[in-house]
Amino acid sequence: MTGGTSTDPAGTGDSSSKNGIGGNAAQVVQARDITGPVYVGRPRARPRWWLIGGLAAVILLAGTGAAVWLQPSGPAELRVTADLSANDAGPWGYASEDPGFPGPELAARLARPGADRDSQLAHDVRVAGGAGLLHQVIRLHLEGPRTGQVVVTDIRAVIRKRLPPLSGTLVWSPPQGAEDSAETLLELDDRFPVLQSAVRDATGNRNFPAGPYFPAHTIKLVDGETKEVIVTASAAKGAYDFDLAVFSEAGKEIKQTTVDDAGKPFRVTGFPCSARGQASYRTVYFAQADTTVSRQPDPEHFDGVGEC
C-alpha cells in the first residue's frame, strides 16, 4: 500500500503535524490535508473497546467536522426476481396431491361462464398450491449492480422434491393450438437437468431443446443493466419441487443466487397415466364448451390425454 507523505521528516512523533496510513493494502484511501493517522482495515494498535469489523474507518476532515465512513468494498451484487404471471394468461392447467384442491370458493368460481380464460382465477389456483401441468413459464429478471459489472454464467435447477405425477386433483383449461414460443427449456425429467436453447420443429407447433444455453450465451450486466431470461420448465414422468440457482461472476468471485416462487419452490407435474390416452385422478375440473371449468363425473378414467 502507498502511504501518505509525512510532514514530520524528523520523526518527532507529533501526530498533529503528520499523515500516516496503515492497514490492508487491498483498500486505498486518497485524501488531502488530513491531520492525524488514518487506518483502513485492522490498525496496528487500537483501544480494546474498538469493535473491529463493525466499521472500517472514520476519517475526520480537519476544519470541516465532516465524517466519511469507509465500508469494506464487497463484490458487485446481482438481483434476480421471478415472474410467473405468463402462466395465468391461458390456456392453463394445475394439479395437486390434495383431492380437495382448490377448495370450495375457487370451485364455485370455476363453475362460472368464462372461467376457462379468467387469468385472475388461474393466478389464484396457482397461488393456492397447484403445480403447473406439464410445464411452467418462469421469467427471470436479472439486474446488475448500480456500479460495476457481473456476468451470469449459468442457470441450473435445484430439485427439492421428486415424486410420481400428482393424482389428487386436476384443474385444466387445455391449449387448442401450437405451443407458445420459448427462449430456453429445462427438462426436469432429465437425470441432470440443463438449461437448453429452444427451437421450433418443422411444423412450427412444438419447441425442442437445441443444446446447452450456457456457455454459448453470455449475459453481461453493467451499471444497473437488466436482462430477462424466459425459462420453460417441463415435466412428463414425475412431479418436481425445485428452485433455480443463478451463477454469476464479479471480478474473481463466483456467487450463487437462489430464486424461488415468493418463498416457495416452483412446482411442475406430469399426468398420472393409467392407460393409453387415459389418466387417473380423484377429482378433475375440465374446461367445457360453455366456458366453465366443471367437475368431471369419472376422474379415475380421464380420457383424451395425448401425453399418456
Rank of each mutant, 00 (worst) to 15 (best):
A82H: 02
E183Q: 15
R46E: 13
T7D: 12
P265V: 07
Q149S: 15
H301F: 11
R146M: 08
G65R: 11
D223M: 03
E307A: 15
G204V: 02
G251M: 03
A210F: 12
N24S: 15
T147D: 09
G65C: 05
E179W: 09
H217S: 13
L51A: 13
N205F: 10
A287P: 01
V38D: 04
P165C: 11
G263F: 00
R160P: 00
P193R: 09
L51R: 15
S280L: 05
P43W: 06
S173K: 07
V268Q: 02
Y285N: 08
G93S: 05
V229T: 07
L60Q: 11
T203H: 05
L133A: 13
G20M: 13
G65Q: 07
P212V: 02
P193I: 03
L185H: 00
D154P: 07
D33Q: 12
G41Y: 04
V284D: 03
G177N: 12
A202S: 14
T292G: 02
F101P: 01
A128Q: 10
F242W: 03
Y281R: 05
C273F: 01
L78F: 09
D189Y: 03
N19F: 14
D290V: 01
P297K: 06
V231A: 11
L166K: 02
P212A: 15
E307V: 12
D180N: 13
T269C: 08
D190S: 14
I138Q: 02
L110C: 04
V259T: 04
R267G: 00
G263V: 00
L84V: 14
G65E: 05
E105G: 08
V58W: 11
I155A: 04
D201Y: 06
R42F: 10
A131C: 08
L140D: 04
A89R: 15
I34D: 00
R282D: 07
L195K: 08
V28N: 09
R109D: 11
F286H: 13
T81N: 07
R79S: 15
P299N: 08
Q30F: 12
A245E: 15
C308E: 04
G20R: 14
L134P: 00
T64G: 10
K264G: 01
L55V: 13
L121E: 04
Y39H: 14
I21G: 10
D190K: 09
A31Y: 12
L142C: 04
P113Y: 03
G144Q: 04
L60H: 14
G3V: 12
V28E: 11
F286A: 11
F214C: 10
S234D: 00
G211D: 03
E225N: 11
L195F: 09
K237D: 15
